[in-house]
Design a protein around this nucleic acid. Structure first.
Lengths: 117, 117
DNA sequence: CTGTATCCACATTGATACTG
DNA sequence: CAGTATCAATGTGGATACAG
């Protein structure tokens, strides 16, 4: 998406575009708990993610400076990912999102459900 | 998107799925500043949004209980939108997203830009 | 004034199989 | 083990014109 104006709430969308990638919050959360993690280790810790999408997620995080990638060209290959300081600065935000969801998502979902019977 | 597990960071995605709709943060922000607002008033305050997408955004917000919609079947028609308490509870989160972006987005964008010669 | 109906463009996710 | 190439499916956003 492209930003148009420069108003206050519009800036929030910059971060949303980073976080809204489906697996990003989970990957940051895991790497915050344990760094480094190897590629396969991450993939097993994120149930349901495909290699391709996990790689894309990590590439984006690396590009944005939220994660670092260390490649050890051994046999077999080994790649380690670490969260950066900038990445760590997002952890409190992820927790605040989670806190809101935990407290309010039931009400939201109840509204979405066609009042059963 | 559908949620798969029930782990901590996964819950954050519930809220992200709400907020990541392109115009949602802006609409909530505007309605927090001024409620009620009429449809066209909102549309003029959100530069670049189309009728269709704004309507869809408001429908989602209404469905989730973040906004109320009041229809006055006069001539010409008048429709007023108000933010709810639940919607207001998201304002601090939107501000925290904005604060992070304001402080860090320059660094992120610099990394994305191929170090211009 | 408000909202809907089409039709289209684009990005993201995903399944599967292959390469180094 | 780590990553890529392909192809398909889906969903969100958008332009335009029409309806109540």
């Amino acid at each position: 998406m492209t930003m148009t104006t420069d108003d206050a709430p519009v800036r929030a969308r910059w971060l949303l575009e980073i976080l809204a990638t489906k697996w990003t919050p989970i990957v940051l959360y895991l790497l915050n708990q344990q760094s480094p993690m190897r590629s396969g280790e991450l993939r097993r810790s994120v149930p349901g993610v495909s290699r391709k999408v996990l790689t894309a997620t990590l590439r984006n995080l690396e590009r944005d400076g939220l994660v670092t990638r260390e490649n050890y060209p051994e046999t077999p290959p080994r790649v380690e990912y670490r969260i950066t300081e900038l990445g760590e600065s997002l952890i409190p935000i992820i927790f605040s999102l989670e806190a809101w969801a935990e407290e309010n998502i039931a009400e939201v979902l109840a509204r979405r459900t066609p009042h059963a019977a």
